[in-house]
Nucleic acid binder design. Sequence first.
DNA 1: TCAAAAGTGTTAAGTTTACACCCATGA
DNA 2: TCATGGGTGTAAACTTAACACTTTTGA
Lengths: 225, 225
Amino acid sequence: MTNFYSSSPTFHVGVDCIIFGFNEGELSLLLLKRDFEPAKGEWSLMGGFVQTGESVDDAAKRVLRELTGLEKVYMEQVGAFGSVDRDPGERVVSVAYYALININESDRRLVQEHNASWVNIGELPPLIFDHSEMVARARELMKRQASTEPIGFNLLPKLFTLTQLQSLYEAIYGEPMDKRNFRKRVAEMDYVEKTDKIDRQSSRRGAALYKFNDRVYRKAPKFKI
Amino acid sequence: MTNFYSSSPTFHVGVDCIIFGFNEGELSLLLLKRDFEPAKGEWSLMGGFVQTGESVDDAAKRVLRELTGLEKVYMEQVGAFGSVDRDPGERVVSVAYYALININESDRRLVQEHNASWVNIGELPPLIFDHSEMVARARELMKRQASTEPIGFNLLPKLFTLTQLQSLYEAIYGEPMDKRNFRKRVAEMDYVEKTDKIDRQSSRRGAALYKFNDRVYRKAPKFKI
DNA sequence: TCAAAAGTGTTAAGTTTACACCCATGA
DNA sequence: TCATGGGTGTAAACTTAACACTTTTGA
């Protein structure tokens, strides 16, 4: 009896990470300037190959960790990219993931070693292969999910001001929002808790610092922003 | 110099299809009772392996065509499933797709030859591997997309009554809808066109038959149902 | 003549949007 | 004292939801 699987070819399976960060009111992506072939010298997403005994999700986590040093990061699968010629080197089916990280928590040394840098999302260079398409799909997905679930907090420090939070959502949606309406909505989210701490960086008066309480959110998960 | 790719393993890449149909007010899936190993005798999705020189999307289209005889079907990728042990036979990374078809247009002989049948979505048997999870994800995705884009028409005959259309959306959302509000919304969609034909199957009085005009939709794509 | 599905508008409730001024502070 | 960002409420516009009766016709 012939083996059921053996008549079909096998392929390298890759993972590529669209890594979002937020700083100074701007969304950025962590991109690599490739110092290796193929496509040496061009910009790309951080990627890698799935290994034996490693799930595709785990491969994505590993690849993210290799670049940023971070574990337990918020990640979502964007989808599989499987055109025949998407990688000119060899046939590779790749699964894209997006990650939301707090830029300040990433390991600067690792980032530098990989020749990676944060690029403002409005000024992205052309990317290799189909990586620009992956980014476009990831942005769409992230935008939709950000309007539905409180994932934006992953991009902020643990303590943040409401102005920061609003500026984050303005960056995600790409449009300005009304301050009073925004704060009204946040006020209804019991899991966005005002602390007694004050941020004195951003203004003379000082702004109240808030935190996201996931425990409370899971009890009453209502979110629409 | 060593080859960049060769240090990583390769895997079989599969595709699995969640095939939605609509009949008698009920959503159904086209499932296979496997007459081959592994998991012979159990229920599964229709699947196959990606071939050399074939994109993953094309593999999904081929697999769907092999079972239904249909081409140019509405399909969406659900995502990649990559757990290490998801297929007990051998390591397989699989990409799930959902398809929306008109049951009457599928090739009954082909369906029979594959030992496949339409199963009401409320009465699904346990499925092999992670196929139940694929189905769950596909349903969620399809529901969301159905509320945003006029994809439901793919499940109906070219001519349909408003009662059929409402009953379809009730099946998709799993909840009853108000007839007058529903018709009000449809009346605002210029691309849902009343024909001069009458359906006399469903009632003594007869119901006006409508059709979806994709040309008109693309000019003014507003949809919310 | 009646059973069965088709067809049709109005009102109340809820949600979303627009909008402008005072506050607290450090320089 | 003034420049800067922080903080606050109300009313109009719009959207959504609730609701019941008349029409047509084949059996």
